[in-house]
Design a protein around this nucleic acid. Sequence first.
DNA 1: TTCCTTGCAAACGATTTGCATTGGA
DNA 2: TCCAATGCAAATCGTTTGCAAGGAA
Lengths: 146, 146
Amino acid sequence: MPIPSLDRDVEQRLRRDDVRYTRGRRAVVQALATAAGPRSAAELHQDMGSDVPLSSLYRTLTVLEEANIISPHFGARGLTRYELAEWITGHHHHYVCIECGAVEDIDVSEEIEHKVDALVEEISGMASFNPTSHVLEIEGRCRRCR
Amino acid sequence: MPIPSLDRDVEQRLRRDDVRYTRGRRAVVQALATAAGPRSAAELHQDMGSDVPLSSLYRTLTVLEEANIISPHFGARGLTRYELAEWITGHHHHYVCIECGAVEDIDVSEEIEHKVDALVEEISGMASFNPTSHVLEIEGRCRRCR
DNA sequence: TTCCTTGCAAACGATTTGCATTGGA
DNA sequence: TCCAATGCAAATCGTTTGCAAGGAA
């Protein structure tokens, strides 16, 4: 999923908060941009060559989350994975392996997404909720675990 | 959500695995049966009066999960919440507060659930996945946080 | 007696924090 | 220069485990 103006957009967004777009932060954004799904701190640590200390990585993730560059995903026991925020990647869903916990992105057509939205509205209406967004995850066994 | 034959059903299910349905286990099942949504070990500990040691509670949760009496829910940073398995409560969805992380059950009509299933099938088909189930969570701010 | 179950304390893995150092505007 | 960002080590939090004691069949 190539995002042409990614660095520019992120830098601009960070500048708003007076936050610097440093080498370490660029590396995380890069790693997430090329990942096939949400990644945990440990996974990013591997992806990135393991020289950055974990504590710095966690700090970077916190900063990026606060600036709304990345979003947390809680789909596995006791660990948080991150992905680029939807204003960057566009709205999407996840395929989650019930065996190993791996998570993969699913992009859906606008047409289908409209149907999802309509359903969420319908359900929320009946329960008198005020939805701001939704999460749809499809569970199954991934290639490796099948 | 009153479940008339709950204790009987659970006991029977546990006996299959040669697992005893002890006082502590009954208490957890009871607490979950009356909860409005998934509960974490710490939350259950409070719900139950706090005299059971946490380690026992965790062990109970492990046993009940292995016997498929309860199911884990990962919707919050670094903590697992549990709810009664869907063969007991019926399939349902969740309303998740984006502010405080509280989770509440949403029961939907069969009619709507059919639509959800159809959508999941449609999406999975396009991605050549083999779905065994799905999770739909509606996000918003709960009464308290609004 | 024979296992399953529980309690307590220590161990663990993911994440956070204090503090001194480094680095960029 | 000056404050944000980083590295390292220690602390914290949710959860798990070893081991000895308690209980039910």
